[in-house]
Design a protein around this nucleic acid. Sequence first.
DNA 1: AGATATAAAGCGAGCGCTCGCTCGATTTTT
DNA 2: AAAAATCGAGCGAGCGCTCGCTTTATATCT
Lengths: 231, 231
Amino acid sequence: MSSLRDFQARHDLSMEALCARILERHAATIRVKKPAVAIANLARIVETTLMLANRKGFHSTSLRDLTEQSGLSMGALYAYFDSKDTLLMMILGQVVGVVEEVLGHPPDGLANDPAARLRWLLRTHLFLTETMHPWFVFAYMEAKAFPKDGRDLAVSSEMMTEGMIANALADGVARGLCAVPDVTMAAALIKPMLQDWYVKRAKHRRRGITPDLYAEQLIAFVEAAVGLRRA
Amino acid sequence: MSSLRDFQARHDLSMEALCARILERHAATIRVKKPAVAIANLARIVETTLMLANRKGFHSTSLRDLTEQSGLSMGALYAYFDSKDTLLMMILGQVVGVVEEVLGHPPDGLANDPAARLRWLLRTHLFLTETMHPWFVFAYMEAKAFPKDGRDLAVSSEMMTEGMIANALADGVARGLCAVPDVTMAAALIKPMLQDWYVKRAKHRRRGITPDLYAEQLIAFVEAAVGLRRA
DNA sequence: AGATATAAAGCGAGCGCTCGCTCGATTTTT
DNA sequence: AAAAATCGAGCGAGCGCTCGCTTTATATCT
């Protein structure tokens, strides 16, 4: 069974790789021409933003805090975004994009094995949020407070992953592998347990729970709940 | 089995009753002498604060917004709290207090019936958060961003309810009613499903899920997960 | 019962300050 | 020397909060 290390070896989710994607997406806004410079500074900006916002909230983080901690000046920051909200949307958009990319393409072998697909979904979601922890905490905590676009994006992303879980369950029911009275409801109950890993990670860490351990226990819990035999 | 209506008949959680308790707790700070006046205005202040803060965040809600929507002047507001943070702590403290009061005293008959006690805990938690929905959303969304006291209070309150769930599970295991590999972990998985009811209530409502329905489905899900036979 | 005195409650302009953001000057790279 | 990138003082708006003043409610005295 795949571990966190395997997952991280398969996907390049380094700050540089993620910021290269942000640069592509927002080329129209970013005024800096040389990609190498732009990516390096975006990395500094995003890293600092995530750190400060996760400590005291994005709204409470001022651009002066950001200049001090990142080492860039006010004017330099505004060569990368045209408003504070745009900075938020850059990060949020990247999170949503990665979720779609990583969770949207399960391995081919799982198409006819809903139980394995469910396990893969849960495990991959946990490993992804573990690897990009500050990004997901940011998206979860800030998405609601900001522009309508952002909220809609976050909601539709959540509905997508929830839908994939519901599909795996429905597939399992259709094949007689498990009995779930309402797959939509079951998926809606499973989602917050996935989110709890990154929202309350400090608590789980304090108890000595690693990502692999959490994955194993969550999968066992869910399989028992939906009446799937253990694999 | 007890319904939401039964729950609301047993506990007076009206805005007036809750604000009377806030007045008691903060008598030292509140400069208004006549309880009737103080309670009525506190109710206006708290109601408005919850509405605005849940719409756009507490930090983004200015005291000018609050004066406009509540009909009270700047000076009048400051007769009820001495800083914006104190206003936050008033609401947060009341939420924590009610949780302790309502969940901390299960009916006597349940002491020797862990399965029934677990059901009672889940159901009561859902009904409580349903009845005081804006209060709980506020506490959940804002607690992290504000003074250390507030965060500690919220964390310890969460640990308390989680502990009560874990106790019921441990009791069930000891009596051979169910098999749970790690009761702390199981309780940690159950808690976010409880919270999801109020954090994502709009989504559940859109799907036609009532509090009673959610309670029933959640209880079934949890009982299957921990291997408890249905009652 | 009406007039007066005192206390309680409410008012809102204005204070000092920080915010997001701009832009002409300056430095660095090509 | 031209182009690209960075700098940071300064702008107006909006923030939490104060305080001298007015209005309303209650107690006291003819």
